[in-house]
Write a protein that binds this DNA or RNA. Structure first.
Lengths: 235, 235
DNA sequence: TTCTGTGAACAAATTCACAGCC
DNA sequence: GGCTGTGAATTTGTTCACAGAA
């Protein structure tokens, strides 16, 4: 069996006790807390916070307790304290430089997305091989660079996190180059399963795949509805 | 407790026995199989297919067996048969009309994304309220329409699946309108937790959140590395 | 013999329910 | 009294290991 990617998270060294499922929810809590703080909320109960994050209060409490006790019994959680605590766990004490490979419409949209900047990520370079794209302006990122400059920029800014927004047939090659240059975390928008050495963390976001999951539910909903109205099993 | 969204999938009526985790992987298998078929592969073993999908062969076999026996012992799976079987489960026997709300750069990128069309989804309308955007061209979709036309288009084409690509502060309002118009599945790119009546399926894709998860691992990787080199606990 | 299909064992994640502190 | 923190129970998901069909 060759290189096997982690299906979700089994990274080689999490704070010995924070499960992958919790790690995936911490940023969500952080986002909700940010918004609460902006609204001037100083203290929040697990019930309220959980509701705004779309999880149960018991789960939220269990998740947070893994970071060490951070609430006050009988009272709730202090918003700024919790933001700091989660931010620390997530590595938000400093900003992360990020490169985007692929300057198609998705790459451009990601480069222009203010949410990255707002949440601690600086897009320090956007790359492509298409001569029509290289040199064109890409919003806050500046000019699109040629892929040949990738290694230089990754090393210059010690980039560890990269986004792949290329067509499927180029993603594996780009992945290999990124890894060779020193990138150890990749957010992959190409509809392919990448292989990378153990220790490289890959997260896949397949947009069509998400719609398929919704379609599954619609499909089955129709069957159920037909059941109810026609009284006959469909499919 | 008010309206609670399904955390991942508990939809009101899955083929009595296909767990949410499996449903989320079926589109992945389908994607891999499509590519195999394009390369002219007629038959594939669970080992090979699993490897290309990034899962274990045992899991793949278990997932597929839930659709009813679909392989041949001692041989493997016939690619076209499996594509048909999964496609049926996913509701790919027909195409799904989809609307996109929000014609910012992300909305445009999604509208231009060929992957949707290629995998059974037709973007039948893209909507915004910004007068500068309404009427502008949006690639294959045609003109960006005003949000006021949303209900008309949703009803005209019996749209059940929608994509929200608006700023966070408008997403809940848009969600409400979509639901009222008859949409029952939403892919939400706005960094908010939407609330919707039970039975409405929502999937969230928060781009910054994905990077946060990667940052967590990088953060901890550094700590481990520092541990090893400096011999002292960090954080 | 090979490779699927599957019960049984195991592991992970979530919920329950309540002890403990404010 | 109210709300956090947490063990125990439960549910869900994955892996193991092998029976059984081609």
């Amino acid at each position: 069996m060759p290189i096997r990617r982690t299906p979700d998270c089994p990274a080689p060294g999490r704070p010995a006790g924070v499960p992958a499922a919790t790690v995936a929810r911490l940023p969500l809590y952080h986002r909700v807390l940010d918004r609460l703080e902006q609204r001037g909320v100083a203290c929040v109960s697990s019930e309220t916070l959980a509701e705004q994050a779309g999880v149960t209060s018991a789960l939220l409490r269990k998740d947070l307790s893994l970071l060490g006790p951070c609430g006050t019994r009988g009272v709730g959680y202090e918003v700024p304290v919790l933001i700091a605590r989660i931010g620390e766990a997530l590595g938000l004490s400093h900003r992360w430089p990020v490169v985007i490979v692929g300057a198609g419409s998705l790459g451009h949209a990601l480069g222009a997305y203010r949410g990255f900047e707002a949440r601690g990520f600086d897009v320090v370079g956007m790359f492509d091989t298409d001569p029509d794209r290289v040199g064109s302006l890409a919003g806050p990122v500046g000019q699109v660079l040629h892929l040949d400059d990738l290694e230089r920029v990754v090393r210059r800014d010690s980039v560890r996190i990269a986004v792949i927004a290329t067509p499927a047939d180029q993603s594996q090659g780009v992945c290999d180059r990124l890894v060779r240059a020193g990138v150890t975390s990749i957010l992959n928008f190409a509809p392919t399963t990448l292989s990378a050495p153990a220790g490289v963390e890959i997260r896949d976001v397949d947009l069509a795949l998400e719609l398929h999951i919704l379609a599954y539910h619609e499909q089955h909903r129709s069957a159920v509805a037909a059941d109810e109205t026609i009284g006959e099993r469909v499919s």
